[in-house]
């Protein structure tokens, strides 16, 4: 697997694959990633907010059974290994996106795997918000909606961005696994050519591509989180 360059013919062959498919693989990876992150937040963000505001001591307590159910469902989804979850959920893809193969088919399982993570991430970010500030807003007559949109989310923004960065990294990792069920992108490239066809050069190229993507997202995310944090001193 590490003897990549000893056979010039094979190398040339693999380089050709890389040149012709790499760009498209990156595009597929990115497009799936963007959709998955958006949907994971569409579902996960409100749930994360609910986990904080709806608890017994929260600003808008919800019935205990409801919070309990929500917590159990989230924990359950979080504890099923992604590969298994993907296989269980795949029939759902047929209903939602009309197909069980290809990149679109991997989006529903990915969202289902990722939204519980997002919900927990959002929850923990919002819990960091100083309770005194929430009380101060209540004392000014803020409604629940105003507290969520004007206090909780903006005050937690740097932490939410950090959480988002972790989510993106995790989804990229899941995406690589989704190659197994035919989800396109760098993950599929690595598995199809490398694992199934012994084209290790292609595999490494795809893996390195993923690593670089994760690095880029991580550093951009960290920078954004810092830039948005007004609590840091000595910034201009």
């Amino acid at each position: 697997m590490f003897d990549l360059f000893s056979d010039p013919v094979k190398v040339a062959q693999q380089m050709e694959i890389i040149f012709s498919e790499y760009g498209f693989a990156i595009w597929e990876t990115m497009y799936a990633l963007v959709l998955e992150v958006i949907f994971a937040y569409v579902v996960g963000l409100p749930l994360g907010v609910l986990l904080v505001t709806g608890e017994k001591e929260g600003i808008r307590p919800m019935p205990g059974w409801m919070m309990k159910t929500l917590n159990i469902v989230i924990n359950l989804l979080r504890s099923v290994p992604f590969l298994i979850l993907m296989i269980i959920v795949l029939p759902l893809s047929k209903i939602i996106v009309g197909t069980k193969v290809g990149t679109p088919a991997t989006i529903p399982p990915m969202v289902i795997a990722a939204f519980p993570l997002v919900a927990r991430m959002v929850e923990s970010s919002l819990r960091e918000v100083n309770h005194g500030v929430i009380e101060a807003s209540q004392s000014m007559g803020a409604s629940t909606w105003q507290i969520v949109t004007k206090v909780l989310l903006p005050e937690a923004l740097p932490s939410l961005i950090s959480g988002g960065t972790i989510t993106v990294g995790t989804i990229l990792g899941y995406g690589a696994m989704a190659g197994i069920i035919g989800g396109g992108g760098l993950g599929k490239m690595a598995i199809n050519y490398g694992y199934y066809n012994f084209k290790y050069l292609v595999m490494w190229a795809a893996v390195i591509g993923l690593i670089i993507l994760v690095q880029i997202f991580q550093s951009v995310g960290t920078k954004l989180a810092q830039a948005s944090d007004k609590r840091l001193r000595n910034r201009n």
């Binding site: 100083n130 005194g132 004392s139 007559g141 948005s228 007004k230």
Partner: peptide, 22 residues
């Protein structure tokens, strides 16, 4: 109604409770 009345009764705190991001 309570929220409307609260606007007429302001409060300040030991720990100030300002919004850090504003």
């Amino acid at each position: 109604e309570l929220r409307m009345q609260r606007r007429k009764i302001s409060m300040i705190f030991q720990s100030f409770n300002l919004l850090d991001q504003r």
